[in-house]
Design a protein around this nucleic acid. Sequence first.
DNA 1: CCAGTGATCAGG
DNA 2: CTGATCACTGGA
Length: 172
Amino acid sequence: MNPERLDERFFSQDAVTVARLLLGKTLVRVFPDGSVGRYRITETEAYLGEADKACHASKGRTPRTEVMYHKAGKIYVYLIYGMYWMLNFVTGPEGSPQAVLIRGLDDLRGSGKVGRLLSVDKNFYGEELQNSPRMWVEDAPELSDFETAARVGIDYAGEEWKNKPWRFIALR
DNA sequence: CCAGTGATCAGG
DNA sequence: CTGATCACTGGA
């Protein structure tokens, strides 16, 4: 049986659950030249809705955060520091703005490096992983060997939110 | 430690 | 329009 492409059912779970379950799953990218890259997801972070001060949606619905209010399984990308494209997947029920940031693939760590490796840019904004011809996620056995940590780069979020253990790191 | 680099958003 | 801010990285 071929690996199943993960769809809206999978991504509709809450962001913390999806961030954990994505560890070990296979991210597939078909590049413009037709070459195919397959990567094991090794680090993720969860951003859990308007209440989460670290989540972009804590500032409400704007053109940038709009896609997080859409149905799960869409791609949320944005440019940070004028140089780095962050790759996120929308999760949770429709209307509940949640997302999971992809921070590591195989041995590569760092969300900025992930965007560079995959040649992500604003054209991916809103694309659906269940339909896209150039990016999707395939199922793989659940990975139990991982650790959690606080999320990176969100000191502005305040004590309650910045210490949530919503960063998931695959071991081995 | 800190500079680079430009979209985004709130405020006039 | 202005200006602060930023889910980062790489090099002193």
